[in-house]
Nucleic acid binder design. Structure first.
Lengths: 344, 344
DNA sequence: GTGAAAGCGCTAACAC
DNA sequence: GTGTTAGCGCTTTCAC
């Protein structure tokens, strides 16, 4: 009786290669490659043979080898400037990211999260230019984004939110129409008989901040009204509270305020309450973002809903379609809707 | 005069290869490779020559080639089960993720964000097993994480938060000591003379949910008190409000409540106010999470601070150290601190 | 439709 | 210390 060591058979558990699949299916590696990549020019028999072999071996193509040979990575970077990362806790951002991730989950692309260090911007640029990704999504939000708009020359890029830098106005952008949203919000106030309309807006080095003041101004002046007081916050609840405090201290009267984010609005609301001002009786409030802050404020806030998950999935979709070579519009505007609640 | 077409020279602007660097520096490719990878066994002269060549050519190593040859990817996956993604808007999660990203930014590792589809768990598993990453970080939070604990066998994995599945109790885990945190919170209530201590806790299929009830129970019984009413939420503000509503409706008296998250606490607070109950006069509230919700509630909430960014960077650090072959403790507990404010 | 052959750009023994 | 030599596992002409 000759005993053969069984162990050696199972010993080296290396991942199966395309070559192994080819051998098992009785075809060449090229054919396996064709099947894996969905080429039509293969006989049905070969296709099934290969697929069975793949199944049987639990074959998974090696991404590095593929990338090396094909010169494309199947990877998309989501770039978040470090400054922006501070706003990470903002539910708006979180759900944009979630939207991106969810969309990409249904494609062959993999999402790489890049927090762009501001102290070493070169590192990010090198990574992006270094052939590590097929394209990039940039959630840019402040004026210092020139380095990213330049990236556009050498890598397919889509911006989430209008970049501040105007170089290359031919950027691909997915954004909500902030001017329009702010104007609609403000008009809603006016339609409800308000006349001295204040605003608490966002940083003036961010497109969203600028555009929302702009929309407010447009609506106010088109109604023939004088602009009310204006204060600037940074979209956080605390900054909203501070802004409202300053506004009250300044003493200029107002009977309504358009607050550029629900988080700021919730902060402002607290200050109003402290000062014994009733909403909406004494002052109406309208804001942007239909998040928890807007829904659970007392009173619940009338607001402009900008669907953030949708924006996330859309920005991803635009890039993927570009990578597929499809013709895509430069600017995609995500529609907003007015949600009426009790604060106006 | 023979005219030579100049164009051809500039035409193909291919990224410089290691080979080009070698040529320019007058050394072999191996030497360049050694310099790039920081091997010490190279003469200083060679090092500088190579570095100059790299600088001059703006050479960036090709990651795919590197991965293919070296069998490691320099990539770490951050896996977020789809269910968990729902909680994405939770500032706690957002900042754990941010912590991970920030830590990794200072290493050579790249972060890949994986939202694990629950309808097709195989896809995630394949990706993770398929040699696409060197290791994985799993922000797991519900009972259905067996597939991930099994992953552990074939891939270095670190869990953020204790996984529910008990297979392989030798998992690497970074977590806050939820039992302890809850117990401390509850004891604080007791030290302040409260006697009928209720709790609103998290889902009982999540470790954080279970452990926090446990801690509450421990503190209550060790003080010789009867446990007060208990309601379950899902960590969201709305669920906290609902839970409080049920608790009030049930009619069992209580003079304090330990709420397992600040978001739920803020929801519960609103309901208490609706019912004319004063905090802390009529009922004390203590919670976990030192986020905006805790800070800006009225009154501001006494809470247990679990530093989420730290947890994020720590979980990343543990994995990186494992990948470096260092000896790392299986369980790393992030210390929490009690923050006293006005709600007790 | 299919296979053979030639790399993709790098690392890792192994000699020297 | 440095160079030479093989590949890593796949895609992609190019013949057939």
């Amino acid at each position: 009786m000759n005993w053969v060591p069984r162990l050696s058979i199972v010993t080296t558990e290396t991942a199966p290669t395309l070559e192994a699949v080819a051998a098992l299916a009785g075809v060449s590696r090229s054919t396996v490659s064709r099947v894996v990549n969905g080429s039509t020019r293969v006989t049905p028999e070969a296709v099934t043979a290969v697929n069975e072999a793949i199944e049987q071996l639990a074959y998974v193509p090696n991404r590095a080898a593929r990338t090396l040979a094909s010169r494309h990575t199947n990877t998309i970077a989501l770039v978040i400037p470090e400054n922006t990362a501070k706003f990470f806790a903002d539910p708006y951002f979180a759900s944009v990211i979630q939207g991106v991730a969810m969309y990409l989950a249904n494609t062959d692309y993999t999402l790489t999260l890049l927090i762009a260090s501001e102290t070493d911007p070169e590192k990010t640029r090198r990574y992006l230019q270094g052939g590590n990704v097929d394209g990039a999504l940039i959630l840019s939000h402040h004026s210092d984004d020139r380095s990213f708009t330049q990236l556009t020359k050498s890598l397919p890029v889509v911006f989430g939110g209008r970049p501040m830098s105007q170089e290359g106005t031919d950027n691909y952008i997915v954004d909500v129409d902030n001017v329009d949203a702010a104007a609609r919000a403000t008009r809603h106030l006016i339609e409800h008989g308000r006349r001295r309309i204040a605003t608490i807006t966002g940083p003036q080095n961010m497109a969203a901040g600028i555009d929302r003041v702009e929309g407010w101004r447009v609506a106010v002046t088109e109604a023939g009204l004088e602009p009310g007081p204006l204060e600037i916050g940074d979209f956080t609840p605390t900054s909203g509270a501070d802004a409202m405090r300053r506004m009250l201290a300044a003493g200029a009267p107002f009977d309504a305020v358009f607050v550029a984010s629900a988080q700021m609005a919730s902060g402002a609301l607290g200050v109003l309450r402290e000062h014994g001002l009733r909403v909406p009786e004494d002052v109406s409030i309208i804001t942007i973002d239909n998040d928890w802050f807007a829904q659970n404020a007392t009173p619940p806030l009338t607001t402009i809903d900008q669907p953030s998950m949708v924006q996330g999935s859309t920005i991803a979709e635009v890039l993927v379609r570009r990578l597929r070579g499809e013709d895509v519009e430069r600017t995609t505007l995500i529609p907003t809707t007015l949600v009426e609640r009790a604060s106006v």
